[in-house]
Write a protein that binds this DNA or RNA. Sequence first.
DNA 1: CGTTTCCAGTTAACCGGTTTAGCTCTTATA
DNA 2: TATAAGAGCTAAACCGGTTAACTGGAAACG
Lengths: 371, 371
Amino acid sequence: MSSTGDTPLETAAPTRARLVDVARVAGVSKALASRILNGEQLPIRPETRNRVVVAARGLDYRPHAAARSLKRGETGALSLLIPTLTNPVFALISRGAVERALERDVAVLLIEDSAPARASELVSRLVQGGRIDGAMLASVQPEHPLPRTLERLRIPHVFVHRTVPGSNRNVSMADQKASALAVDYLAQLGHRSIAHIAGPRLLTTTQRLVEGFSARAAELGLRHVVVGDDFSEPGGAKAAGELFDLRVPPTAIYTGSLTQAVGALHVAFERGLRVPDDFSLIASGELPLANYLNPPLTSISLPLAELGAAAVDALVGQIAGDEPRDVVVETHPEVIVRSSTAPPQDPTGADPPAGRARPVPVAVEWHGLIE
Amino acid sequence: MSSTGDTPLETAAPTRARLVDVARVAGVSKALASRILNGEQLPIRPETRNRVVVAARGLDYRPHAAARSLKRGETGALSLLIPTLTNPVFALISRGAVERALERDVAVLLIEDSAPARASELVSRLVQGGRIDGAMLASVQPEHPLPRTLERLRIPHVFVHRTVPGSNRNVSMADQKASALAVDYLAQLGHRSIAHIAGPRLLTTTQRLVEGFSARAAELGLRHVVVGDDFSEPGGAKAAGELFDLRVPPTAIYTGSLTQAVGALHVAFERGLRVPDDFSLIASGELPLANYLNPPLTSISLPLAELGAAAVDALVGQIAGDEPRDVVVETHPEVIVRSSTAPPQDPTGADPPAGRARPVPVAVEWHGLIE
DNA sequence: CGTTTCCAGTTAACCGGTTTAGCTCTTATA
DNA sequence: TATAAGAGCTAAACCGGTTAACTGGAAACG
């Protein structure tokens, strides 16, 4: 298996060029070749430098990752832990992270967090095995064991999208702005009574979305309500069902994820409700699928890929020695208008003729001003 | 940064255990420790072996990936090239591959094939940089430059899901069976006139799906037609539109992917056609989303995760020295019955009163027996 | 004129494993 | 009784880079 030098057999094994080869061709020591190729600022004759660079290019030389890693004590690889690949939100974050990492010549190991204990063990193994320099975590729920482990091992890490308050390691975006924009858009269409289907309350993403929603709705004097506690399709379906059961349902629903919107559309269909005739629907997070739902879904675009890219940048910074600090990605949310939103059909629905909307049949309470 | 031995400062940097540490604790040389921990069959006193094993466990020792890689000339890492992460088909294949790889203590680098030239360059870089031992390719179209590059560099590789005939490196499944099952199911419901919305004709997956469809339809004496050339939502929408434009549209449509089915549902909705009243719809490939479409989509389950796992197995085999050979994953397709399929509404629709169905308004021709 | 400084490099140690060659001691064999 | 054959281990080279320490000569400096 040792392809050192010549292989006298008929199959000329194409062997990688090593640093020594470059050095020999350029007529210098491998030490010098190494330092030149790494762009060190050194007193060196330009002509010598050139010989080395040309030799490296000519031989298509690439430093052996393992050798470099061994000496430097760095691997040039990161892990990215996500809840599931089949959720397009995380697919997009992953895309952004992998792209940026490749630009920076860093490798990314993607891992699905099927079970917290297992994920912790896997990441620890990668760390202990010297396979990664740092970890990006997009799936930590508050009691997840991994952050503590990483803290103890002093492994650089960041939290992406799902953040940990006070950690100084959060890479997030101003989700509030997306919610506020959604509320603005619905209000502008004439809706006076709106609902938000939210995710798990423990997640900071959820909290930001809810906060943005409630704050702006209150500001505009809209009646508003928040339901739901799961970003999935069934979560959206269940929450939507609760809303439709209200004595006075909202005329518009804003979901925290596209998957929830799919669930909401599903129950609407089952109950014979029509969108946007019976209620308007708008979701946070734009995906190609939105255009092919029935009806095509109005949504708020969010820079998920940029979020992944920013996570890589922050983590690479930490590895280089920077102190961990929170990063908030610039958000310029936009409404992608499709066919699931329209002015409310029955203007009185937002303000029922019989005055006050209470009592409410399920454990859901309206907030906001009753004019 | 050198944490060699003791760090006298207050921050006790938790340093990885190395092989020497294990050897010292066990009172043996590191050579022996290495061979024991690698499970070599050697003349060794059981007690000595035990001391080493216990020491390794006690120190939570894990061999440093880079050091091992450097000496062995293997990285213990593979790449997986997929068209896009946001397509759940490839998300599932990736899931299966990553899971199996982690079981085998191998790392997987996931790469999206945004542009063939760029992907080729990236994978080459990984190979040349000694970052991966082999590549899994799930996105090669016939003129993709990567296979040639890998062949030239003598890098082990396999083709997953999208195969290359004659390469002996294909990891695929018997998609034909899924198509045949779909046809059987539709026939059993009473449909006599069915259509298949296919993917790009150059892909072998498409060819297998089409073959299974046409063969079984002919066998059962059904009128059948194949349209479409793209697995995406717009591709499904366009093809469905062509079918609806037929003078005698089919009473059932079988799509090669769930995304195409989404597209088909979309145009049906736009044209006011109802599923399954106006036509039945069944898709190849089961995904959670299917349950939340309107109506919930009947689909054929396929072992996509197993396919990814099998790809890892095959590739690891090649790296260990096996000759490349095609692998066909066991398929036991099942119909997941939901609400998008039903007996045809108008039994005469399958066999129009006016006799022959031609002429056909678009470039689509019916095949099969006219009774 | 002797010494220091700078230029333009080279030598060799080292990272943490794996692996080949070899060494010592006991036991079986001729 | 000499010797070959294991059993049971150790020493050291090696993988391919990086980097601290060093060298020989020319120029600058006091």
